[in-house]
């Protein structure tokens, strides 16, 4: 029997999870969204302060939920990156301290590997597999040919898709984070506004979102100057068609070219209902299986970190107590941390 305690503090959620042979015993998330809402984004110093305040409260609650003691834990896992540096430091100190006191392995986990492996809470992986990693900080297409074997085949050249949603939401006067409100308004609208995809090579797997954002901003401003009323529902719908269309098209092209058996969605934007619907429609009638993460796994949490840590525990991927954080850690370098 293996029990793992995992800590995640890379952005604006302080999270602790405990698993026992893959079964989730505790999953605690202290979110800071209400604090960062008023700034329209995450303020790194404030986020770091809140992590330092919340960390032992989350640990206490996780042990209570799991009905176990620290002595029962076999390894301590922590998100080492990517993320906000000051935030990562807090989770790292807690995990290292526990590993040191209980003389148990310390497991460094890549945050995006966590988002991908969150899907194992709902399905088995079949390789080769395509991971569509879409969030506020990342937009990546990743091919996996086996366990923990990541090849990044496409990424954003400028803004991440989630970031683009937040900015468009702000222009349309919708709240932060922008994903859900745009999704909701888009359902009520029609794609009547001419938003165009950026011109990129037809065979690329890379993304670009800054141009789409600028088009929306310019269009909204021009209309305002002319005294025209912007239909929020229609604008949200027009924007979302293009923003999500770019993801689904590239994903399906990659899926065919790499002959994948499975596609998994990962990251905060995978909560988007239009993306989920479109992906389901696209794989229908093909032999490709689609795994969609449960909604609780689309936001940051430590259960997903524990899921990756289980694999690393078996492989004995352990770090020394001198482990540091890496805010820019690349997914394909998940086993390099010294």
């Amino acid at each position: 029997m293996t029990r793992i305690l995992a800590i995640e503090s890379s952005c604006d959620e302080t999270a602790v999870a405990i698993t026992e042979d893959g079964k989730l015993l505790a999953n605690v998330v202290a979110t800071q969204i209400s604090v960062h809402e008023k700034y329209g984004g995450v303020m790194p110093e404030i986020a770091s302060r809140l992590h330092a305040e919340n960390i032992t409260v989350c640990l206490t609650e996780a042990l209570r939920q799991a009905k176990c003691k620290l002595e029962d834990i076999d390894a301590f896992a922590v998100t080492r990156g990517p993320g906000l540096i000051g935030c990562l430091h807090v989770g790292l100190q807690a995990a290292k301290t526990l590993a040191m006191l209980y003389k148990k392995p310390l497991i460094p986990v890549h945050h995006l590997a966590g988002h991908i492996y969150a899907n194992q809470y709902v399905g088995e992986f079949k390789y080769p597999m395509l991971c569509v990693v879409v969030s506020g900080g990342n937009t990546e297409l990743v091919i996996m040919k086996g366990e923990l074997d990541f090849e990044i085949i496409g990424e954003t050249l400028d803004d991440a898709v989630g970031e683009c949603y937040d900015k468009v939401a702000r222009v349309l006067g919708l709240p932060y984070p922008g994903g859900l409100p745009i999704d909701q308004h888009a359902k009520l609208g029609q794609p009547v506004y001419p938003i165009h995809r950026p011109k990129m090579p037809h065979d690329t797997y890379n993304f670009s979102y800054s141009g789409i954002k600028t088009q929306v901003i310019n269009m909204v401003n021009t209309m305002k100057m002319k005294g025209e009323v912007v239909n929020i529902d229609d604008m949200a719908c027009s924007f979302q068609r293009v923003a999500v269309g770019m993801i689904t098209d590239r994903a399906m092209r990659a899926a065919k070219n790499y002959g994948v058996k499975q596609i998994v969605l990962a990251g905060g934007v995978s909560a988007n209902s239009y993306l989920r619907d479109q992906m389901q429609k696209k794989v229908k009638g093909t032999s490709i299986e689609l795994i969609i993460p449960p909604l609780w796994c689309t936001t940051d949490n430590a259960a997903m970190i524990a899921k990756v840590a289980e694999k690393l525990y078996v492989r004995k991927v352990f770090a020394p107590l001198t482990l540091g954080v890496d805010p820019n850690w690349r997914l394909d370098e998940w086993d390099k941390f010294e």
Binding site: E45, L70, V90, A94, K96
Partner: peptide, 17 residues
């Protein structure tokens, strides 16, 4: 700021444990 948080987070974790 970061320096203070490091020792304090370690201390909080030790007394919690």
């Amino acid at each position: 700021y970061t320096g203070v948080r490091i020792a304090l987070t370690i201390a909080k974790t030790v007394v919690f444990a």
